[in-house]
Amino acid sequence: MSNLILGVGEFGASKSSADIVKTFALGSCIAVILMCPKTRTVGMVHVALPESKINPEKVKTRPGYFADTGIPALLQQMAGMGCDPRGRGFIVKLAGGAKIMDPNNTFNIGKRNALAVKKTLWKYALGPVAEDLGATYSRTVSVSLATGEVTISSPGRGDWKL
């Protein structure tokens, strides 16, 4: 068994049944999980910010950083692994997008991330079958290729399935 660990703004996919795809400590970031049942491929992108227009230069080095460029980049990688390029038949799950207790909502990047992720998914006619978004706790997310199970954990709160 090997772990495909994804840092902030990274994306990746695997079709090895022994693998775990994992990302640590999502705060306001969101893990977008794309699963292709036909090829048994699992992909994930760790999205940090909603829109790439804030820093177009960054897109060249790390497209996964933004919702609007990260999801297309992951779809492209998975297409190279034999999956449908527009994600037809994919199972989509989302986790993350936490918030701080903020009366002004200025700091609610998590909510903006969630909206941008869904907006990008809609362009491909994709939508999540399950999501664990918002609230005020950090999340570590892992996907087992052997079982397809998505597990979320948070310090002090244990772990649960998505």
Binding site: V8, G27, C29, M101, Y137
Partner: peptide
């Protein structure tokens, strides 16, 4: 904390 933290107190404070 919004960028990510692996401690139980993450995001458990008021702005």
């Amino acid at each position: 904390m919004m960028c990510g933290s692996q401690a139980s107190d993450s995001l458990q404070y008021h702005l």
